[in-house]
């Protein structure tokens, strides 16, 4: 059986060799292997090269504003919990422009997966520093070298007790698929930060650079141990851990909401009935 998520005849606007291709392939195969149907999946993205990904899959797509994919994804899942909802975009979109939404989505714990293409650089605007760029990173804008230190998405998410926190590498598609399978099947907010080389603008964090450093968290890592997870999230440099850092199963926003109200979705069912209108008017008497 061919993969129903395969989008035929589409011209992909990424640079040859871009790390985005690995993420696209991993996501497409994961969705198929988990048995999802395209019309039950919604991909929400922001703006940037990474945010074009939904167009290269056969799914429902909401390609919205820069930084704003998470509020949109939250609302879609809340209105129709039957849908699988994935927000995906780049590190500038998710950690920069939309950083505030990430913080508050963790608090809400909606049952969505957030996949972040983290290449430590701005691609589409041609090479400026991103929130995850190393200190000292030089660009046409950061002419003194980046004066800011990098944002650590994993530490932040673990500190905020996010329900599921993982890191993958687009250079290892099979490894990434394993993580995505867990993340998509997870009930609750799942953050997957994906290290992704930018072959055009990031000459430091290349495929080779990553391959020398990345390793998977082993059996002795306990994702339910928040302190251990946090400690691991700080490791960066000579060795860079990949895998599922932290999990904490807790009621999702949708679970908490739907157990308290008399419906299973919020789809429009027509205007209020005459009896309800009469009841509401009576309250104003």
């Amino acid at each position: 059986m061919s993969n129903p998520f395969e989008q035929e005849g589409v011209e992909i606007a990424w640079c040859p060799g871009c790390g985005n291709f690995g993420i696209l392939k991993a996501l497409k195969e994961t969705l198929f292997e988990l048995g999802y149907e395209p019309h039950k999946v919604v991909l929400v993205s922001g703006i940037g090269q990474a945010a074009k990904l939904p167009h290269y899959l056969k799914v429902n797509v909401f390609n919205g504003l820069h930084g704003r994919s998470i509020p949109v994804a939250f609302a879609i899942k809340t209105v129709n919990p039957e849908l699988l909802v994935i927000a995906e975009s780049g590190d500038g979109c998710m950690y920069g422009e939309g950083g505030n939404h990430l913080l508050h989505a963790i608090r809400r714990n909606p049952d969505i997966t957030v996949v972040v293409h983290d290449n430590q650089v701005y691609g589409l605007t041609k090479g400026q520093a991103s929130p995850t760029s190393e200190e000292g990173f030089f660009s046409k804008v950061q002419t003194l070298g980046n004066l800011s230190t990098p944002f650590n998405p994993l530490s932040l998410a673990i500190a905020q007790d996010a329900s599921f926190v993982a890191r993958g590498f687009s250079g290892d598609i099979e490894g990434l698929k394993k993580i995505l399978k867990e993340a998509l099947s997870w009930k609750g907010f799942a953050l997957v930060d994906v290290l992704q080389p930018c072959v055009t603008f990031n000459r430091v964090n290349t495929y080779g650079w990553y391959k020398e450093r990345v390793y998977y968290l082993g059996e002795n890592h306990d994702p339910s141990n928040r302190f251990q997870a946090f400690e691991k999230s700080l490791e960066w440099g000579e060795r860079i851990p990949l895998g599922i850092f932290y999990t904490h199963r807790k009621p999702t926003y949708q679970e908490k909401f739907y157990t308290q109200i008399p419906r299973s979705h919020l789809l429009y069912q027509g205007t209020l009935s005459e009896e309800s209108v009469a009841r509401e008017f009576q309250l104003l008497v």
Partner: peptide
Amino acid sequence: EQAEDEIAAVNMALGASYAGA
């Protein structure tokens, strides 16, 4: 939903409407 800011508020409403509410 009390959104974290008005940007989230309007984007949530759009997501909800897209989904069919």
